[in-house]
Design a protein around this nucleic acid. Structure first.
Length: 572
DNA sequence: TCCGTGGTACTA
DNA sequence: AAACTAGTACCACGGA
């Protein structure tokens, strides 16, 4: 059962549809969406799938009203997948074009939009003159037809369900927030940088280092924050460097290197996660970032606000469970290699992963000599290394695991020809842009110069590396989405500790819930008494995700799990 | 003063 | 030894 919600001329309206998209009644005017959802939804077990244009526009309001929904179909996210998927034979087309545009996504971040919930005063305004509900229902039907037309529609259905579940999770994680101790954060900053300073003022520890740098380079006016200044000064002392990147400085035997590296480290900490960051992003003990499901072409999430996907290890100890609560931190061990084994049906590679450490399994199988070599070779296979140790080790991997390596090589060759590649469940890579095609055409012109040919070959290989990685990264993102969707469902089924607490309706104040997601890693914030159960649920969800993607193919997805008081304790 | 670009560093 | 995927976000700098 679908319930499509949207605006109509008469106001906020809901329309029930059967699973095939046919009407299951007439559209009904809804006065108050919260009350309507409350009357219908039976979270966490529900037969209803809510359909709306954009989860980020609708769901936060429901959460604030103390409501959660079990399932949804996010038309914006699903449209993007169906539009590009090579498995779809009857493309999603028609509509006002809004489904393809970025405007929807931009809209989504806008907090306002009272009109969604109460349209009374807005009827008659130009932008509301169109019947949006009808268009929304039409779009759902177009999408259902596209799915039906697809090769392997089951995979695509799973992908769309998982993507939509991800949209719910993203909104819920923002609503719940990541538990953050400003006191711990401030102590860490003060220890490293010196006492707190205002914006534009260099903290004491950095000031000391800046003086040392200036003295060593005999340049009293040098600004250590200016790469140009520093590079010039280094060159003046005869240092052979092309940049001031840390890795290059480390190679250099020069007395300025230690204080300079230390300065750069502290400068980065201050700029990226210093006191200004704390003031901007931490409120009431929670860090609330905005997650953007489908924000990366591979299906990985993007994010904005506070750099939540780059949280440095230095400050992770500030991520603290509330008193009486625990953080259960879990990451999938060697997710991408395991996904590659599943994608390619490489049973030898899959059995190397039967233990917790797949790289150790590869060494045990005799493919390479050390764990480090196994890791480097595998990264080279998935990223398309062309030089260095990684490229040298790769052939050994190809001998031991020909099916797996052939799989990524095939994806690379397809990309070099400008073709599209597709993930396990049906997300396809974008087509190369006009500039890329033009470069290729120029190279096949009879008058093409060797430079034209070189440029074309180089950009073809670049795109091949992208498609090579796409098949693995996008399928790994699908595994992670399935993992989280299973996890969310199982967590919601845990009996509540004390339903009399505040926010009882949503369970974020008294029950285990997701607070963090980073590609192959999650954090669940849970009352202490449920921590072990949460850990077991995480494992079971990982097993289920593996079966959803790869059926009975014997590839394992073991987790590293830690039950901790703060994120810094979890091994990263 | 505003805005785009390059340089740098952090994450998986 | 520093190339080989996907991102966000800061700062300095230089041109309008």
């Amino acid at each position: 059962m679908f319930i499509v919600v949207g605006r109509a001329q008469s106001g906020l309206t809901a329309h029930r549809l059967n699973d095939d998209g046919s009407a299951a009644g007439d559209p009904e005017r809804v006065g108050d969406l919260g009350a309507f959802v409350r009357s219908v939804e039976t979270f966490p077990a529900s037969e209803v799938r809510w359909v709306w244009d954009d989860t980020a526009r609708w769901y936060p309001r429901l959460l604030e009203a103390g409501l959660r929904v079990a399932r949804c179909h996010d038309l914006r996210l699903c449209h993007a997948i169906l539009r590009d998927s090579a498995r779809v034979n009857a493309p999603v087309e028609g509509g006002a074009g809004a489904w393809s545009s970025a405007e929807q996504a931009d809209d989504a971040s806008g907090a306002g939009d009272e009109a969604l919930f109460d349209l009374g005063d807005d009827v008659g305004r130009d932008d509301l003159a169109t019947d949006r509900l009808t268009e929304t229902v039409d779009e759902l039907r177009r999408q259902l037809a596209a799915i039906t037309s697809a090769d392997e529609p089951g995979g695509l259905r799973l992908l769309l369900a998982a993507e939509s579940a991800g949209a719910l999770i993203a909104a819920e994680m923002r609503f719940a927030g990541l538990p953050w101790s400003s006191a711990v954060h401030d102590t860490a900053l003060t220890e490293l940088l010196g006492p707190r300073v205002g914006p534009g003022v260099r903290p004491q520890r950095m000031e000391v280092l800046a003086s040392a740098i200036r003295a060593t380079l005999e340049d009293p006016l040098l600004n250590p924050d200016s790469p140009q200044d520093v590079l010039r000064a280094l060159r003046r002392t005869g240092a052979m460097v092309d940049s001031t990147r840390a890795w290059e400085l480390r190679e250099l035997d020069h007395p300025v290197v230690p204080p300079l590296l230390e300065y750069k480290k502290l400068s980065r900490l201050l700029a990226a996660n210093g006191w200004a960051w704390m003031d901007a992003w931490v409120r009431d003990g929670r860090f609330r970032a905005e997650y953007l499901p489908g924000g990366v072409v591979t299906g990985r999430w993007a994010a904005r606000g506070g750099g939540v996907l780059q949280l440095p290890k230095q400050v992770r100890s500030a991520v603290r469970a509330d008193p009486g609560w625990k953080l259960v931190v879990a990451d999938a061990a060697q997710l991408e290699p395991r996904v590659l084994a599943g994608l390619s049906g490489d049973t030898a590679m899959a059995s190397a992963g039967h233990g917790v450490d797949m790289y150790a399994g590869i060494v045990a199988a005799g493919a390479v000599d050390t764990r480090q070599h196994a890791k480097i070779a595998m990264l080279g296979a998935m990223y398309g290394a062309t030089s260095g140790e990684s490229a040298r080790l790769m052939p050994r991997l190809a001998r031991a695991y020909p099916r797996a390596i052939a799989y990524v090589e095939t994806a690379a060759r397809a990309g070099e020809r400008g073709e599209v590649v597709t993930s396990r469940l049906g997300r396809s890579s974008p087509r190369p842009g006009e500039g890329w095609l033009k470069t290729q055409r120029q190279a096949s012109d009879p008058d093409a110069t060797p430079a034209d040919e070189r440029r074309a070959r180089s950009s073809a290989r670049d795109w091949g590396r992208f498609t090579r990685n796409f098949v693995v990264q996008s399928s790994a993102a699908e595994w992670a989405l399935c993992w989280m969707a299973e996890l969310r469902g199982a967590l919601a089924a845990i009996p509540r500790t004390d339903a009399s607490l505040g926010l009882a309706g949503t369970g974020f104040a008294d029950a285990p819930h997701l607070v963090y997601f980073l590609h192959d890693e999650v954090i669940v914030h849970t009352p202490e008494e449920h921590a072990d159960r949460v850990a077991a649920i995480l494992e079971e969800s990982a097993r289920r995700a593996g079966r959803l993607l790869f059926g009975e193919f014997p590839v394992d997805f073991p987790l590293g799990i830690g039950v901790v008081d703060h994120y810094g304790e979890a091994k990263g």
